[in-house]
């Protein structure tokens, strides 16, 4: 059975994880891969965690991935990166934005937000790449394009090129290029 490359995208409802995964899926299919993408939404739209999973290779069967099976985890939010880490395989790569979005238990003071955990990581058997996507996107004109920055980064690592649709605007195209630049 051919091996697949597995990715998990994680963020908070409204951050654009699903759209990002969609664009990347299309690009990977265009260069001849079998592709499956899985998303879970519903309650997640109400400020909860949103995960999408993407698998590609010669032939993909199950659309979802298990713990320890992700070659890449792409995190749009810092606490969500932490939550998704069990999915990362030994030797895998975590790409994350440093954006912090406080959940209700944090806002209510019932739980604390682990603000500095990534600084404490001594990357042993996995790689961690911090891409300050929200900051980059804001500097380029729209903080909403943070997902496009991360898209640029992961696409670059996977060796595919995504043409950003014109309707996304010039800021998005620049955001994509900045994302590519952030990992080269």
């Amino acid at each position: 059975m051919g091996k697949t490359t597995n990715l998990l995208f994680t963020g908070v409802g409204g951050q654009g994880t699903i759209l990002t995964t969609k664009l990347l899926s299309s690009a990977l299919a265009e260069v001849g891969n079998d592709v499956k993408m899985s998303e879970i939404h519903g309650m997640a739209q109400r400020g909860g965690t949103v995960n999408t999973q993407l698998k590609f290779g010669d032939k993909v069967y199950a659309p979802n991935i298990g713990e320890g099976e992700a070659d890449y985890v792409v995190a749009f939010e810092k606490a969500e990166a932490l939550r998704a880490l069990p999915f990362l395989k030994k030797g895998g790569t975590l790409i994350m934005d440093e954006r912090e979005i406080y959940s209700m238990p944090v806002l209510l003071g019932q739980q604390s937000y682990p603000a500095t955990w990534n600084a404490e990581v001594v990357a042993g058997d996995y790689k961690i790449i911090v891409v300050p996507a929200s900051k980059i996107a804001a500097e380029l004109g729209s903080a909403r394009n943070a997902n496009v920055v991360l898209l640029g980064s992961i696409a670059k690592l996977l060796g595919v090129k995504i043409s950003i649709p014109d309707k996304f605007g010039e800021a998005a195209r620049k955001a994509y290029e900045a994302g590519e630049g952030a990992v080269s």
């Binding site: 606490a79 969500e80 739980q111």
Partner: peptide, 22 residues
């Protein structure tokens, strides 16, 4: 088959993120 998890021991727990009224 299946995965072998990366060693992420020693890290804090992520705070819960339950769905909320917008």
């Amino acid at each position: 088959g299946g995965g072998e998890k990366a060693d992420a021991s020693g890290l804090p727990d992520a705070p819960a993120r339950p769905p909320v009224l917008c």
